[in-house]
Nucleic acid binder design. Structure first.
Lengths: 113, 113
DNA sequence: TCATATACATAAGAATCCGATGTATCTTTG
DNA sequence: CAAAGATACATCGGATTCTTATGTATATGA
């Protein structure tokens, strides 16, 4: 089972930031594979979604990049900047809070007419 | 604190379906107020988001409508159709599953280099 | 050698939500 | 009793975000 794409919307940026917080530095392709692995294939980040997101994080100053060559192939590593670390904390706690709220909404049986 | 709007994306339809499942019939304005109340103002559904969503649910055959007049003012009630009830179960369990996955992603400290 | 994996990137289009605007009625309060 | 605020519907332009497709190129395994 793969989650319907609407669910990913709005959480992708937070997922990426969190992964970078836990792994110091990662490159794009690695991120897609890591998410796939950690979620047992339930979340598959497409490249068309990931790269624009990474570029946006960079232009917002939340991540810095360094390019490496593996043989002749380029690899672009991303790391959190100091402001990126703060942003990650905010985003993660907001999402955690949101999920608690959603859980409450989904479990509730209100017949409070 | 109000959640950043990106988070709502993808969950709105499920929230609405779940509310209708728990409350038999509701009208648009009532839904916005109920969500606001149940989430202690953290989720505020705008009308510009809600009404198109309700119309989409209707044209997908997931809800049926009945119009009532309160004095001279129109009130449009929405109820789940049989297929809407099935869809609600699917959507709710998918979202619950997704939240578990996200919780796992957010809590994890992977330094599995 | 040919398919698959690795690795980057962009771009058109779809989907979804926000904010603004519009219309109208009802209720509360100074 | 007038004005403000709440109730109640609706639409629309614009922004954001993701999908799908496409493009380029190298590396690896069968």
């Amino acid at each position: 089972m793969i989650y319907s794409s609407e669910l990913i919307k709005g959480t992708l940026k937070t997922i990426v930031l969190k992964l970078l917080a836990d792994n110091k530095k990662m490159y794009g392709y690695e991120i897609t594979q890591k998410v796939k692995e950690l979620t047992f294939d339930k979340i598959q980040i497409t490249e068309g979604a990931l790269y624009p997101t990474l570029h946006a994080l960079e232009s917002d100053g939340l991540v810095t990049t360094e390019t490496e060559y593996i043989g002749k192939r380029v690899r672009k590593y991303y790391s959190l900047s100091p402001s990126g670390k703060n942003k990650t904390k905010e985003k993660v706690s907001e999402l955690a809070d949101f999920m608690d709220t959603m859980k409450f909404l989904l479990d509730i049986k209100t017949k409070t007419v």
